[in-house]
């Protein structure tokens, strides 16, 4: 008898606890979740040429590592709001307009290749880091450039609106380097300048360089310099001061990381052939990224 009554107490407390959780779950919606509930739709942004994070396939459909992750977040939102028929809109954005479009409510979640920096956190919020990159340069093997120092007296390209611009400017000042830079308005254009021998190097995040190289006409002609100007985390971008939505984003990502599903998504996009040309980026997971998966966090780069 005694045992049973102890069990019944346990059951009773479990019921009470779940009722409490239920009450907490039913709290009033705020921010993005409220907007999604009211409009019946969520708008996720994508990039057009950020391979393999977020880009367009042959049918002009957004695909990629970040898009897969975002779809998981969208699934979590559907479950949370109990709206299985939630309409999901995809909106293309660029390096330059992603922050204003997020702030003015055009997009609700940015899943591309966006660096989480302390400076940007003054304007927007970021979910858990899902990628870590090094800022470096791609060069042609035939150019004889083996280090950043070899770029002295040469011209390099970079994409305007990216954190690489400021980093590279800083690098130019610290070294007694005489390097000229020109800006492409997207990664494809900056790479075109390199492919056409108009510049000696393209300064950008290593993985984006690998993506451009893999999809170029002759990937064997290029190499990525081992040096690093900076290490930066990528994360999904959302509006600031939106705790409910951030909680869903963070817990979804943390769940994927803990369950090992994130590694599967990683393998799918970074070490297997990917559309549109079935090229393999051969970009194994870095120690920094493994650490980020073990301890999910949203710390920004300085």
């Amino acid at each position: 008898m005694f045992k049973i009554s102890k069990l019944s107490i346990l059951i009773a407390s479990a019921i009470t606890a779940s009722a409490l959780v239920g009450a907490a779950g039913a709290q009033e919606l705020t921010g993005t979740l409220k907007k999604i509930k009211e409009t019946g739709s969520i708008t996720v942004s994508h990039r057009e040429a950020s391979i393999p994070f977020s880009y367009l396939d042959d049918n002009q459909k957004p695909i990629g590592y970040s898009v897969d992750i975002c779809n998981k977040v969208v699934d979590a939102v559907k479950a949370e709001l109990k709206m299985p028929n939630l309409s999901v809109k995809f909106q293309p954005v660029t390096s330059s307009n992603r922050i204003p479009l997020l702030q003015n409510g055009t997009i609700d979640l940015e899943c591309g290749s966006t660096t989480n920096s302390v400076e940007r956190q003054k304007q927007v919020a970021f979910g858990n880091t899902y990628f870590v990159i090094n800022v470096t340069a791609a060069v042609k093997k035939s150019s004889g450039v083996n280090a950043l120092a070899d770029l002295n007296g040469k011209t390099v390209s970079t994409t305007s609106g990216t954190t690489s611009v400021a980093l590279f400017k800083k690098y130019k000042r610290t070294e007694t380097a005489d390097i000229k830079s020109i800006y492409g308005k997207d990664h494809a254009e900056s790479f075109l300048l390199l492919a056409d021998d108009r510049v000696a190097a393209f300064v950008m995040d290593d993985v984006l360089l690998a993506g451009q190289i893999a999809n170029s006409r002759s990937p064997a002609d290029y190499k990525i310099l081992p040096e690093s100007l900076n290490t930066e985390p990528y994360g999904p971008m959302l509006r600031k001061d939106d705790p409910q939505f951030k909680k869903i984003v963070d817990s979804t990502l943390a769940g994927l990381m803990k369950s090992g599903e994130m590694e599967k998504i990683y393998t799918k996009w970074f070490t297997s052939p990917i559309p549109p040309k079935n090229v393999n980026l051969n970009f194994p997971m870095s120690p920094a990224l493994k650490a980020a998966f073990t301890n999910p966090n949203d710390k920004g780069a300085e």
Partner: peptide, 23 residues
């Protein structure tokens, strides 16, 4: 001309917006 990277007024405006986020 911003599209070819000429650092004219509109390019600088965008750069200012992108760097400071004070669009």
């Amino acid at each position: 001309a911003y599209s070819i990277g000429l650092v004219e007024l509109f390019f600088r405006t965008r750069e200012m917006g992108e760097t400071t986020f004070q669009y």
